[in-house]
Simulated assay, not measured.
Amino acid sequence: MLIAFLTAPRGVEQVELTEPWQAVLDAGDTPRLVSTRPGRVQAYRHLDKADAFPVDQVVTDASADEYGALVLPGGVANPDALRMDRHAVAFVRSFFDTGKPVAAICHAPWTLVEADAVRGRTLTSWPSLRTDIANAGGTWVDEEVTVCHDGPNTLITSRKPHDLKAFCAAFTAEFAKAGQERMSPSGI
């Protein structure tokens, strides 16, 4: 299955990109880096520059129809930039509209708030997003990982880099279930 990783050109927390990326590879799926601009994505370790990664596809050329699921890595600047880009927000929203699973960690739920995708959902995030999520109609919980099926798709969220092991295990399991459901004949 092809999995989209959406990031801004700068500001993604490197470990929140690289560990989920590796988890997707380990699960036998194919990750693709989607961004708002072509070229490379500059990752960070907190506030320090880290590695840069090549963009596979620009979000204006991407469609949820191409992908089986979406991963939204965090970092403070990354989701803040994404939520200001109407194409990125529409891309995120389209995964909810088509019932495809979405995984988001740390500050990434800011983009979900902008996409009006947290209303009626239970999720976790970096603690500073608690009020934003509540104001957008979501229920915030302080848990290592949260899997919410109360909506048009499965939403998997996690709080911080320390939770990556649980986050990766949860979203790869949910992505595998979604892939099997899409491949099963209807009515069975």
Rank of each mutant, 00 (worst) to 15 (best):
C148G: 02
C168Q: 11
F91P: 00
D26F: 03
D51G: 01
S94A: 11
A176G: 03
G11T: 12
D29K: 13
L47M: 09
F53Y: 11
A23D: 07
I188D: 13
A64G: 05
T157I: 01
M1V: 06
F167V: 10
T18Y: 13
E16A: 07
E181W: 10
A69E: 02
D29A: 15
G11P: 02
P101Y: 02
R130L: 07
F171Y: 06
V89N: 02
T139C: 05
A108P: 05
T122V: 11
D150Q: 02
T30D: 10
A166L: 05
H149F: 04
V34F: 15
P161S: 12
D56Y: 09
H87T: 14
L123I: 00
S186Q: 10
Q180W: 07
W126K: 01
A8W: 09
A77L: 14
G179C: 08
E114R: 01
R121H: 08
F5D: 10
V34W: 15
D150N: 10
R159Q: 13
P54C: 10
G39M: 07
L123K: 05
D29Y: 15
E174G: 01
R159E: 10
G187F: 06
T157F: 01
A23M: 04
M183S: 12
P79L: 07
D56N: 08
T60M: 00
A77F: 14
A166M: 05
D142K: 01
A81G: 04
A8K: 09
S94R: 14
R83F: 12
A115K: 10
S35N: 14
V58A: 09
V102N: 01
A52E: 15
C106R: 05
Q22A: 13
P38W: 12
G138C: 03
D48Q: 07
P185Q: 10
E143Q: 13
V147L: 00
L6N: 04
A27F: 13
P161V: 15
V92I: 15
A27Q: 10
I156T: 13
L164R: 08
S184L: 10
E19P: 00
A77S: 15
R32V: 05
V141W: 08
I188W: 15
P161Y: 11
Y67L: 06
V102Y: 02
Q180V: 08
L164F: 07
D80R: 03
A108I: 07
H107Q: 10
R83A: 01
G11C: 12
P38Y: 13
V24S: 07
N135M: 07
N135V: 09
K100P: 00
M1F: 11
T98A: 11
Y67V: 03
A4P: 01
D26L: 03
H162A: 13
V59N: 05
F96H: 04
G39K: 08
Q57L: 12
L47W: 12
